[in-house]
Computed example of a mutant assay.
Amino acid sequence: MLIADLGDVRLHYRDEGPRDAPAVVFANSLGTDLRLWDKILPYLPGGLRIIRYDKRGHGLSSCPPAPYSMGALIGDAERLMDHLGLRDAVFVGLSIGGMIAQGLAVKRPDLLRAMVLSNTAAKIGTREMWQERIDAVRGGGIEALADAIMERWFSRAFRETVELEAWRNMLIRQPAEGYIGCSAAIAGTDFLTSTSGLTLPTLAIAGSEDGSTPPDLVRETAALIPHSHFEIIRGAGHLPCVEKPREYARLLTAFLAEHGHV
């Protein structure tokens, strides 16, 4: 296990592939850990350096007291990439990971040559909505929200499979403090203005059955960035890399190839 000690937080990460290969950094969603990406890895081309990490308050990373700011989450990604000596990487962010990608692209354009905004937006929900969720977790733990989250995360067909139990368990076993902290970060984030100033190559991916960031919301964010490319994965919800890993990997591989990253 690899741990990056960044001072105020310690991040668990995986660093796989040749150290001198083109780097792809993956940032996962609220309530998941770096295993979110497991199913797409066998379908990605060889010769990549794949970095995945657990954001603060999730997985095996440390869990500082809530609330967190989006600036802190962006700073964590920035410091991890500096720690690993990464430059000119492609950053793939899903949901809150996609918000981190947008903020990092504004703050440190030297780190990113391109980004993938998956099932995310420049602004997700309202402060009031997120406060209701924070209050529910404070009162009854993540379990209080788990069934409703599964409905937003996955298509009806996937929710009828036995695999759903594993993802529900992943969710409820995240630290409540970390879930609350990251919820507060999302609540306080509006990147509509800053994202509209970005020009780096961008692929936006939506799931047709996504109940958290519906396709139109993802499309609107993609439209802020000139020459971005938007794709919908049919029959998938908020985590299309889980439901449709082969199709997700195909889109990602084509994007990497288009921009000379494979």
Rank of each mutant, 00 (worst) to 15 (best):
H58E: 01
H58I: 01
H58R: 07
G59K: 01
S61T: 03
S61G: 01
C63T: 15
C63R: 06
P64G: 00
P65A: 13
A66G: 09
P67G: 05
P67K: 07
P67E: 03
S69Y: 11
G71H: 14
A72N: 12
A72C: 08
L73H: 08
L73N: 07
I74V: 15
G75R: 07
G75P: 04
D76V: 01
D76I: 02
A77T: 09
A77D: 09
E78L: 10
M81K: 06
D82V: 10
H83L: 06
H83E: 08
H83N: 09
L84F: 11
L84C: 06
G85F: 04
L86W: 12
R87G: 07
R87L: 09
R87D: 10
D88V: 13
D88C: 11
D88Y: 13
A89P: 02
A89C: 11
A89I: 01
V90C: 07
V90R: 09
F91T: 06
F91C: 04
V92L: 02
G93T: 01
L94S: 15
L94D: 08
L94A: 12
S95L: 08
S95I: 07
S95W: 10
I96A: 06
I96G: 04
I96W: 10
G98V: 01
G98W: 03
M99C: 10
M99Y: 11
I100P: 05
A101D: 01
A101H: 05
Q102V: 06
G103I: 01
A105T: 07
V106I: 13
V106E: 14
K107Y: 10
K107N: 12
R108L: 00
R108S: 00
D110A: 11
D110I: 03
L111F: 04
L111I: 00
L112W: 02
R113S: 08
A114L: 01
M115N: 07
M115S: 08
M115I: 13
V116F: 09
L117N: 06
L117I: 11
S118L: 14
S118N: 14
N119D: 15
T120D: 13
A121Q: 13
K123A: 14
K123N: 12
I124P: 09
R127W: 11
E128W: 03
E128N: 04
M129H: 14
Q131A: 08
Q131V: 03
E132D: 15
